[in-house]
């Protein structure tokens, strides 16, 4: 690894700075969501649609993917090829399960009459969660690429920084979801059952 002034690898610092930038991106989306909450003038409204128990399950799945990510990094750093492959794949798969839940949810909402341009809730909801979903998608593609590298035996401990940087991204996307889950779902006034 190249010498750096701070001792922090360049790639890692790049990811941290990028995450700082992303905070403003999601911050703007969340601020807009909050500013427009409850201001739709036609239904269906959020409290009629949001299904907290269902999303709690997919949220749990996404959080578990973060745990798998930690285990994957640890396996790569240890030089454990079996663990690397297993946990990278599991992280990506759990991300895919989360995305499947989102597709199901979006479909269901559309079926209930919530088109993209239906009301203020539809626009803010689809764009905010959709943006997050796009980030998860990118993460899944990234993880599967790393997994393919691991399958071909090209992801030894000397490449662990690649996994660490991907992990930073993945954990950040998870943290954003925790905020979205709180702001959009838990604070929505939708009934718990």
């Amino acid at each position: 690894m190249e010498r750096t002034s701070t001792g922090v690898p360049n790639e890692k610092m790049l990811m941290w700075a990028f995450i700082g930038s992303e905070c403003m991106l999601f911050g703007s989306l969340i601020a807009t969501y909050l500013a427009y909450r409850g201001r739709s003038i036609v239904g269906p409204y959020e409290e009629e649609l949001l299904n907290i128990p269902f999303i709690t399950v997919t949220t749990f799945v996404l959080l578990m993917s973060s745990l798998m990510m930690v285990l994957a990094l640890s396996a790569v750093q240890r030089g454990d090829p079996r663990g690397s492959k297993l946990f990278l794949l599991l992280t990506a798969l759990l991300g895919l399960v989360f995305l499947a839940g989102q597709v199901f949810e979006f479909n269901h909402f559309a079926h209930e009459g919530l088109g993209l341009g239906r009301n203020l809730f539809s626009g803010t909801f689809f764009l905010t969660t959709g943006f997050h979903g796009a980030h998860v998608t990118v993460g899944v593609i990234w993880l599967l690429t790393l997994w393919a590298m691991a399958m071909r035996g090209r992801l030894g401990p000397e490449k662990s920084l690649k996994v660490e940087v991907a992990g930073l991204y993945w954990h950040f996307v998870d943290v954003v979801w925790i905020v979205l889950f709180t702001v959009i779902y838990l604070m929505s006034g939708a009934s718990g059952a």
Binding site: A17, M24, L25, S28, L116, G117, L120, L127
Partner: peptide
């Protein structure tokens, strides 16, 4: 890196308003 993202979000809202009929 901190100032451009809010503008990007604003332009995306505008794009969706113009192309997909959202109401931002």
């Amino acid at each position: 890196i901190l100032a451009f993202p809010p503008f990007t979000i604003g332009t995306i809202f505008l794009l969706f308003d113009r192309m997909f009929g959202t109401l931002f």
